[in-house]
Design a protein around this nucleic acid. Structure first.
Lengths: 337, 337
DNA sequence: TTGAAAGCGTTACCAC
DNA sequence: GTGGTAACGCTTTCAA
């Protein structure tokens, strides 16, 4: 409740000095600073963010745009971003698109673009040319996590290469009949991610001289239930079954494992399954996976933004973060029939 | 970039009128309003939140405090809150405690309490007397979701009654050897939730004349991996095994199911499992559960806050939301030996 | 229905 | 090292 002038009065200095003292600026004697700090604490004074934002032009808040808050990847990134923001005393304004296509307009055209945030971090969104133009016009530092976006730098992984390595792992084990549970993400999300993963899958098959069967590339919507259903449908079909599945995410891989159980198949004996992510549940499922670290991706991206806000040199380059194969119990050589 | 005076100049009216027109206040002619709107759109004008916040005393932002962002319940509530805020054009400032005990101080004493938000919604936190005092001193409307807190109204479910009903379901099926996977949540979170659920479990046993075995009440930390490990440990013990498990959350229930598989037990033939939540994965796991709706809880809580911000009457009463039993394939009568 | 002008609570610049 | 004082860009009250 107390304003800056009450602190000034209590301390016997000017509001200018109070402001400098509290923000740790130079040109304040240690003695004065201590007195001011004490008075501020006693009065419970906290600077109004509106007032300081108006006067300084900095809000000390970062906007974070997420497509949804209920997917492992997004929440992991969010935790990483949050950790960085916290240590910089920045607040996070969360813009959740939550499947509401129409709200992108609001977010872009209004709230985000101006005034409430100093920078913007977006997850897995595919921006239109117009949106990118608007972003640029704000002059705020901007970055994307999880999937390259034309015209914007990003932090992510090598989608195609990772998918390729996952598939190669299956091929190295001796599999030739391999299905792919793919993303087919919703509109407005970054389609480069599922597409890149599918291309990597195909790359590996082609290099190994294995023909790609289109009917074994099925959509799992990045979701466990959908993947389980899709996989069940595939296993229901007459004719030969795959001996292995490369799922574009661990959640989809878990769906595949459950579908295998639904059909009385054992993993990995009857069906090998590999995913991407190293989801919190991956170990419990015994899932072999290409592990990425979204927490770190978020932290790195946030740090880049914060550095620039503190006068650091802007770095235009996108970052590819490392991915490592973790072998667990869901992959093995195919059974000899 | 454009300021309000540029819009005023372009329209030939005063800034006061522009402000009124754009905010939909009365006492502006339709013609003027239309002209102002058009000019604002053309110039890409958006009011600065800092400036309007300073002038009006309202930030049009709500603070949301979460213990973490990577648990199903929290993210579901978050989505519900978000949906409500969005339709009211409110922004969300997310304060993630993320296990950082020390940050509570920062959150409470500084950032949240004043100036940046108009209201505060907290999830599953147990507030100290001092924290509650500080909250009250802001004069901001406050509410808690997920677990009753002394001195604060909340939106949640009847923890004890729900647990009791879950346990009674097992008893009605004929089970008498029932274990409980409990919460034992971290410090600072609301312990009333896991404690209430354990009490409900014991209530049901006592009413049925079944003695409570303390060694069958084991901690699952609200997490799948921890629950799986705990359940495996229990199943490893010599002596009689439970024929059913009441898990305090679906995630823990899934851990129990996986542990059953680890031991070559079939669900529900050898072990019945019931949870609480109706987690996104519950159906895929065929999990019988006491379904709650955290999305709705979040939405309801947010709506209460927003109503009060719009001059509505404050309602002090806490709300208990409905819970329904969903029977799936994880529960059945115990096998006759 | 509209306009003029006084704040709102800081920060930043310039003197001292 | 410190203080005075314009901004900052709106909203709100009071007059017209």
């Amino acid at each position: 409740m107390a304003g800056i002038d009450e602190v000034a009065r209590a301390t016997g200095v000017s509001t200018a000095t109070v402001s400098r003292a509290l923000r740790g600026l130079p040109n304040v004697s240690d003695k004065t600073r201590a007195r001011v700090r004490r008075a501020a604490d006693e009065l419970g004074y906290v600077a109004s963010s509106s007032a300081s934002g108006l006067a300084s032009g900095r809000t000390l808040a970062m906007g974070v745009v997420v497509p949804s808050v209920s997917r492992w990847f997004y929440t992991s990134v969010l935790e990483g971003v949050d950790a960085e923001l916290r240590s910089a005393s920045y607040d996070m304004i969360l813009f959740n698109l939550g499947g509401h296509r129409g709200d992108r307009e609001r977010v872009f055209h209004r709230t985000i673009l101006r005034k409430r945030t100093d920078a913007l971090l977006a997850m897995c969104l595919d921006f239109t040319a117009d949106e990118r133009h608007q972003l640029a016009s704000t002059g705020h530092p901007t970055i994307v996590v999880g999937g390259p976006v034309r015209g914007l730098r990003s932090v992510g992984i090598d989608e195609r290469g990772t998918a390729r390595r996952a598939t190669e792992h299956l091929i190295a084990l001796g599999h030739r009949d391999i299905a792919h549970l793919g993303g087919e993400d919703e509109e407005g999300l970054n389609r480069q991610v599922p597409i890149g993963r599918m291309h990597g899958f195909q790359d590996a098959l082609r290099d190994a001289g294995i023909p790609v069967r289109r009917e074994w590339i099925i959509p799992g919507g990045f979701s466990l239930p959908l993947s389980r259903a899709a996989m069940n449908t595939l296993l229901d079909r007459p004719g030969p079954r795959p001996t292995a599945v490369f799922a574009g995410s661990d959640e989809m891989a878990m769906g595949a494992i459950l579908a295998a159980y639904d059909h009385g198949l054992r993993v990995p004996d009857d069906l090998s399954v590999i995913g991407i992510d190293n989801h919190d549940f991956a170990e419990s499922f015994g899932l072999t996976t290409m592990a990425q670290d979204p927490f770190e991706q978020g932290a790195v991206a946030a740090r880049i933004l914060l550095d620039e806000l503190n006068g650091g040199e802007p770095r235009a380059r996108s970052l590819k973060m490392p991915v490592t194969l973790i072998e667990r119990a869901s992959t093995a050589p195919p059974r000899r029939d």
